[in-house]
Computed example of a mutant assay.
Amino acid sequence: MATNNKVKLNSLLRSQPSGVVLASSWLVDQGYSFELLKQYKKSRWFESIGSGALVRYEDQVDYLGGVYALQTQLGLSIHPAAKTALSLQGKAHYLEMSADKAQLFVSLNENVPLWFKKYDWGLALEITSTSFLPADLGLVDVEHKSFSVKVSSPARAVMECLYSVPKSQPLLEVYEIMEGLNNLRPASVQALLEACKSVKVKRLFLYLAEKAGHDWFNYLDLKKVDLGSGKRSIVQGGTYVPKYQITVPKELEVVS
């Protein structure tokens, strides 16, 4: 391998942490030609995990190493969300968490590469495309191995859980999550509520927060939150809550 190519290889190895995917399109933008990448693979510096993605040879890479590439190299908004985000921050230890599934949210009209969706990460990827919240609001950095990824903050994660109610997420379980979130920052919650486009999510969030009796709820300015008009039936045959104009499961209303 020519000296210049060795220099480029060493620079790449130093600049990128181990345990992450390297997107081929990003590498080309950084000055690494497809021909050079072929040489690196032939020399067993890197190996392919699908069309358009490389990893260091025999490196141990999990789905978060793929998320790192999507966020930092390809500029996508995809991020660990809902219960997965809570678990990564140690906020869901009291819940039944599935070790074989990761919940990810991504903005509408963003295309997630096939290499990420098709590669066997050892778990199932549940990717939800939605823009009910701004892509860059309410995210935090979580350290993983030798790198970090952006994941939903606890407040955003709860809203993402509520987005899936009742189709794939029981509301009673979200209430159990909400009960443990007694130290949210009112300003952060306020910003999320004002920016949220889902009336259902906002009403349910406020209902659960008030029911949980959190002190931070009292510092919210609900006059600035658009709660829409008309009734929302979350479940059939449930109990109607006049204040928020929602119908919730009967078993939730008897919880004190």
Rank of each mutant, 00 (worst) to 15 (best):
Q60V: 10
Q60H: 04
Y63C: 15
Y63S: 14
Y63T: 13
Y63W: 15
L64Y: 13
G65T: 14
G65A: 14
G66L: 09
V67G: 02
Y68L: 08
A69D: 08
L70P: 00
Q71D: 06
Q71N: 07
T72M: 04
Q73L: 09
Q73M: 15
Q73P: 06
L76S: 11
L76P: 00
I78F: 01
I78G: 03
P80I: 12
A81L: 06
A82H: 09
A82P: 00
A82K: 07
K83W: 07
T84E: 08
L86V: 02
L88P: 03
Q89E: 05
G90H: 09
G90V: 13
G90K: 12
A92I: 01
H93T: 13
L95M: 14
E96T: 13
M97E: 01
M97V: 11
M97C: 05
S98M: 14
S98V: 12
A102S: 14
V106M: 03
L108D: 12
E110P: 01
P113S: 11
L114M: 08
L114A: 15
L114N: 14
K118V: 00
D120M: 08
W121V: 06
G122E: 12
G122Q: 13
L123H: 02
A124M: 07
L125H: 07
I127F: 07
T128C: 05
T128L: 04
T128I: 14
T130V: 09
F132H: 15
F132D: 14
F132S: 13
L133D: 05
D136M: 04
L137S: 03
L137R: 06
G138S: 12
V140E: 11
D141F: 04
V142E: 01
H144I: 14
H144S: 06
H144R: 12
K145I: 04
S146D: 15
S146Y: 04
S148N: 08
K150F: 10
S152G: 03
A155F: 03
R156N: 07
R156V: 04
